[in-house]
C-alpha cells in the first residue's frame, strides 16, 4: 500500500465518521430544526472528506473535476433544501424544541 492509499483511505474513513455522526444526530436530536442542522452540515463535511480521499486515487483530471462538481452540487442542494424545510416547518407552526430550564 502506497502512502497515497493510506492518506486516501484515512480521508474516506474520516468522511464516513461525519456521515455516521450526522445520522446519529438525526436519530438523537429532538425536532425537525435540530435534525436539519445535523443532516446538512455533517453531510457536507463528510462528503468533502470522501471526495478529497477519492480525488487522490483518481486516474484523470476530469474525474477530479467530476468529484468536485458532485460535491458542489450536493452542498448547494443541502444549503438550499435545509432552509426551505425549516421555513416550511416554521410557517406551518412547528414548535422548536427547547431545553427545559
Amino acid at each position: 500500500m502506497s502512502a497515497i492509499d493510506v492518506v486516501s483511505i484515512g480521508l474516506i474513513a474520516i468522511g464516513a465518521l461525519f456521515f455516521i455522526a450526522g445520522s446519529v444526530g438525526v436519530l438523537r436530536f429532538p425536532d425537525v430544526y435540530t435534525r436539519l442542522h445535523a443532516l446538512t452540515k455533517a453531510d457536507n463535511l463528510g462528503l468533502g472528506f470522501v471526495v478529497l480521499g477519492l480525488a487522490l486515487r483518481a486516474d484523470s483530471a476530469v474525474v477530479i473535476a467530476k468529484l468536485a462538481v458532485t460535491w458542489a452540487l450536493v452542498v448547494v442542494a443541502g444549503a438550499t433544501a435545509g432552509p426551505l424545510v425549516a421555513e416550511a416547518a416554521r410557517t406551518s407552526g412547528v414548535h422548536p424544541w427547547r431545553r427545559s430550564k
Binding site: 465518521l17 461525519f18 455522526a21 450526522g22 446519529v24 444526530g25 438523537r28 436530536f29 429532538p30 425536532d31 430544526y33 435540530t34 442542522h37 445535523a38 452540515k41 455533517a42 457536507n44 463535511l45 463528510g46 468533502g48 452542498v75 422548536p96 424544541w97 427547547r98 431545553r99
Partner: peptide
Amino acid sequence: SVAGGFDVALRAVRPSLPLDP
C-alpha cells in the same frame, strides 16, 4: 463550514447532547 460540520457532529455524539436551541 468545516467548523460547522465538526460542531454539529460533536453535539450529535456527545452523551450529554449539548443543545440549547
